[in-house]
């Protein structure tokens, strides 16, 4: 029953359409957080400066988010933690995206043994949770090195881009449109610019947004299980863990990092391309 007119009815609701309003709000939210991450460390006092006399000081005009159990400024620590999360996550996502996309397109374009090798490698990677790779790699460096965290997260995520890009590129490259481009002798550049890239872009936007969420959450989770970054570094997961014992006497300690974490992930989730539902 697929008369065009009836089709319109049947298709309604197969996937909620996220309004562009949501995306604009997400961009605004992320810009705000980025401002905190960029300007905060420049303008605010040293986040490691302890002042035990101001132990668990409540929020005030002078110190909007109060002070923690070492008397450190929560706002300053939060700004540093946000910057760390954003920069490290962006680096991981960029690395995984470039690696996975190039490998995926190569796999679909050339086929043959290149495809076979890349697929075998990805098959093994896909069954290993990101967290496990990160755990293993961060065991490499005691004391929670940033380098290990970056390597682990990027290594764990490239396979996702590879699989999606390979599958999608295979469809695009096998389509009549690309066959027609071949008959018209339009060349590889035309295929990449007009066929592959326009098709992959919304997918990659969505994957990268989700990748940011995954990276940020993985970092904070590792801080929580005490194998990621180590205190006294300001990191969202660590801040949540450290503040937990004080949740009833100093709730601002917990609420601030939780709110930032939640805001970061929600904004990135809303940034996904509404057409794509992975």
């Amino acid at each position: 029953m697929t008369t065009p007119l009836l089709e319109a009815g049947a298709g309604v609701g197969v996937g909620t359409r996220r309004r562009p309003l949501g995306r604009r709000a997400a961009v605004a939210g992320l810009l705000g957080l980025a401002a905190l991450a960029i300007l905060g460390p420049l303008l605010l006092p040293d986040p490691t400066a302890q002042d035990l006399g101001r132990y668990l000081e409540a929020p005030s005009l002078d110190e909007p988010l109060g002070r923690d159990d070492y008397g450190r400024s929560v706002l300053a620590r939060l700004a540093h933690a946000t910057r760390l999360s954003l920069v490290l996550a962006a680096l991981c996502v960029a690395t995984a995206l470039v690696l996975g996309t190039v490998a995926g397109i190569a796999s679909a374009w050339f086929g043959g043994w290149i495809d076979a090798v890349l697929r075998a490698v990805s098959e093994a990677f896909v069954a290993i949770p990101a967290l496990l790779v990160v755990l293993l790699v961060s065991a490499l460096a005691s004391g929670g090195s940033l380098w290990a965290l970056y390597l682990g997260l990027a290594l764990a995520q490239w396979v996702e881009y590879f699989r999606v890009v390979r599958a999608r590129s295979g469809l695009v490259l096998g389509s009549p449109a690309v066959e027609a481009a071949g008959l018209l002798r339009l060349g590889a550049l035309h295929v990449v610019r007009r066929h592959l890239w326009p098709d992959l872009r919304p997918l990659l936007t969505t994957l990268a947004s989700l990748g940011m969420v995954t990276s940020i959450l993985a970092m904070s989770t590792l801080g929580f299980v005490k194998v990621g970054l180590q205190p006294p570094r300001a990191e969202l997961g660590l801040m949540i863990t450290e503040s937990f014992p004080f949740y009833d006497v100093a709730p601002w300690l917990s609420i601030a990092p939780i709110a930032v974490l939640f805001l970061l992930t929600i904004c990135f989730l809303a940034l996904r391309d509404p057409e794509v539902r992975p």
Partner: peptide, 30 residues
Amino acid sequence: PGGPMDRLATAWVASVRAVPPFLLGLLLVV
């Protein structure tokens, strides 16, 4: 589809995705 239950479920899905398990666990403990 598009009804109040649907919108509620969509909000639920997004919030659950945005909260890491350790945080959810802490909240449940509290």
